[in-house]
Design a protein around this nucleic acid. Structure first.
Lengths: 247, 247
DNA sequence: CGTGCCGTTGAAGGTTCTCAACCGTGGTGG
DNA sequence: CCACCACGGTTGAGAACCTTCAACGGCACG
């Protein structure tokens, strides 16, 4: 089970490791969120309203019912899943350290969120978060900018899902991952993907078989080398980008 | 050509119809944007920085180059197009009266925007708009909320594009349009679609032929009646919603 | 070292796309 | 007012791409 730490349930005077860690997590996250200095009041309010969760790989992140949720990924990686119907899931976005995610209480589809690996997530009720942000224009603006980024990414995703072939989707995915979590390695890019083939398929609107075949194609083209289940080395991003189908 | 009206090029003292109209357009839009009262200073700033365009059907909305654009749809309907490659377009969203649209300067794909019918659009440089909003927390918050709504819609769209059949996409599209621009009519819902079959196809990731066939299927099921090119009557939204493939 | 899940590979089938022809609407000009 | 024209929409047949179904291989866990 996920380890809950209601930040407001602990005495402020106590020099408890958990408290220090929690405050540090909040402070660290906000620092990454907007580079302007954060007021102590805002930090206090965030600590008071937020819930810090430590999740194991595969664990479900409990979204709030009856209201929107704001999740801050302090550490690790998560997936945001929409369930169209039983046995038919679409991963709407992957999120990594420093990302801020807004999930509505209800929409066309049911949403859920899972940790791809051991993660640390800070949860807020959307209303409460907005209320705090209202009192701190810098935080409000940072949230807006993050939301815009998420929107732009989602639009690009929609283009891929609507108008691209399997190999183009795969190439796009690899390029995006290279940019977000890749590490330079001898002229190429090394990826240590936290998600399974099923996750990739559910993200690209493809089956696991098609994902596997497409990776195989890139391997034969000399554009990808796989090592175990999660590691992929991309020796030539420039050539790979040609296959994304962008103009 | 689109009729440009740089709001700041006109003397403030003149009681010119255009000016009154422009100010009225800005004021009207902001009033719909957030229901809190708008400060005069913010209104002045918006009028000063914004460009009001009157566009004819099919006209291109000139996005700013080298920087992001914020577009406010004061009147009419528009489509936001992403071009994956030549002859392969994906409509990312349709926008109607009262919508606020953010378009980045550059992303994975090239974006453009067109009027579906005679429209009135207020354009801002994203930076300038953000600067004004920074001085008016109410506007900033309203923008955030609108951006979130756009994100949520885009996610739902991504689910449809990734995991739904042609008929499910068509049903979803009709339901969304019914909600956004439909009018109640004798127990059912009357749609006067401003977009062509090609637009619908480009929005749903389908071809015009498939769109046509799917509408035909719903017609045979007694769930849709077409009248000319643009009018569609949906006698039974409840039954139609079953076909959307939502849980 | 065994077991189970994840990933890979192969063959058959289905949904949608492509190509092509036709039809109807709506606008224009006589 | 009617006829024409052009474009948008409809309908049909064949092909392509991806999925589905099935079996096998291999890594990671107990």
């Amino acid at each position: 089970m996920a380890a809950f730490r209601h930040l407001n349930e602990m005495p402020k005077t106590a020099c408890h490791d958990d408290i220090r860690d929690s405050r540090a997590a909040v402070a660290g996250f906000v620092a990454r969120l907007h580079h302007a200095p954060v007021s102590g009041r805002t930090l206090d309010a965030l600590c008071k309203q937020g819930t810090l969760l430590t999740l194991g790989k595969g664990e479900d992140i409990p979204l709030l019912t009856g209201q929107g949720t704001v999740a801050c990924i302090c550490e690790g990686a998560t997936k945001l899943i929409a369930t169209a119907s039983r046995q038919r899931e679409q991963i709407v976005a992957f999120h990594f350290r420093g990302d801020l995610v807004s999930i509505p209480q209800s929409g066309e589809h049911a949403y859920s969120m899972k940790a791809l690996k051991d993660s640390e997530v800070l949860l807020f009720a959307a209303e409460a978060f907005l209320k705090i942000a209202r009192g701190d224009p810098g935080l409000l603006e940072a949230t807006l900018v993050r939301t815009q980024t998420a929107l732009f990414r989602c639009r690009d995703k929609a283009v891929g899902l609507g108008r691209k072939s399997a190999s183009e989707r795969m190439a796009s995915f690899l390029m995006i991952m290279a940019e977000r979590i890749g590490t330079n390695e001898g002229g190429g890019c090394l990826l240590d993907l936290p998600m399974s083939r099923r996750d990739i398929g559910d993200s690209l609107g493809l089956t696991i078989e098609t994902v596997s075949r497409q990776i195989g194609e890139f391997r034969e083209l000399g554009l990808a080398e796989t090592d175990g289940r999660s590691r992929i080395f991309l020796p030539d991003l420039k050539t790979l980008s040609i296959y994304t189908g962008h103009v």
